[in-house]
Amino acid sequence: MSNNYGSKFLSWIKSAAGLSIVVTIVVAVVASIASGPYLLVNTVVTGGMLALVATGLTLMLGVLNIPMFAHGEFFMIGSLAAFYVFTPISNYTNENPDSIIVVFGPLIAMAASTIIGAISGIIAEKLVFGPLRRRSTDDWVMNSFLLTVGLSVLLINLHQLVFGADFKGIVGYWSGMPISIYDVFISRDRVMAFMIAAVIVVLFWFFMTYTRTGMAIRAVSQDITGAQIVGIDIEKIVLLTISLACALSAVAGGSLLFMYPSYPTVGLEPLYMAWFVVILSGLGNVLGAVAGAFIVALLKVITVEYIGAGWDFVIPSALIMFILIFKPSGIFGSDVRGALDK
């Protein structure tokens, strides 16, 4: 029995997925021994955020076949909402430092950003994607892609027009001493951001795997006609998927407000990174996206550490292009070609 598992494990290691995960872990361990554990902490925090954005992107791709270019703008919406909710809360807590809001205030802000993200996703579906879906005849993927390009430009400039181009940031969510683990000091915000990301990703995975609605979403992503035949309400699933995807992106923006202050183009960096993840890990694969998020985060952190800030677009994108040449469907992707290849 154990021999069987052993050979299975060996063959997994030899596959592209296993190989890349093992290499990632080894590189992460070696780098953090060489330069200090803060590398690992940065990777984990960035990876957690990226996992949220990338799973949303993957969901949109897998279920709706929309290559979302405006996903970073929902990140921006989330951070904006969190800023405007958290500012009055922090004013209140400055006057009453003993109230219970000090602990729960940030969570309220993040919840607000999630809800607003979901609502804006629904609005986008009702105003933009729905009409296109009803009118689209062919070439849906490319048309919807260009549509999201337009949406992205629109949202960025609406932000600039309405709220101004200045940085809307906060000092931090949870004040207090940083937590120290083995001589590494990590600010509480970072710890909480990672915890929130982890909880949400696990919940989301649970939702997709075990609930009826999650199964319906997966069914739609595999075969729309088949899903319709077994009685799944496509419209409802589509609406749910878009709001979920946008909420995931928005909560990432909300929970990282202390790192990324809200300004019009704040979403571009997470967007680029999320696209790296999605292309690297193969389209429509949620678990793969989570693993890919940590790989890309590690790449970014290592690049910044050893080569210098600013190179973090050059090296990862070069590496991803290199991988794509040899494995066009991504590391965790299957070789089945779908609607997205057209």
Binding site: P67, V141, W275, I279, I320, M321, L324, P328, L340, D341
Partner: peptide, 12 residues
């Protein structure tokens, strides 16, 4: 690569 993959590659 085709379609959106090729677009992404040229983007990267």
């Amino acid at each position: 690569l085709r379609g959106i993959f090729a677009a992404c590659l040229s983007w990267f």
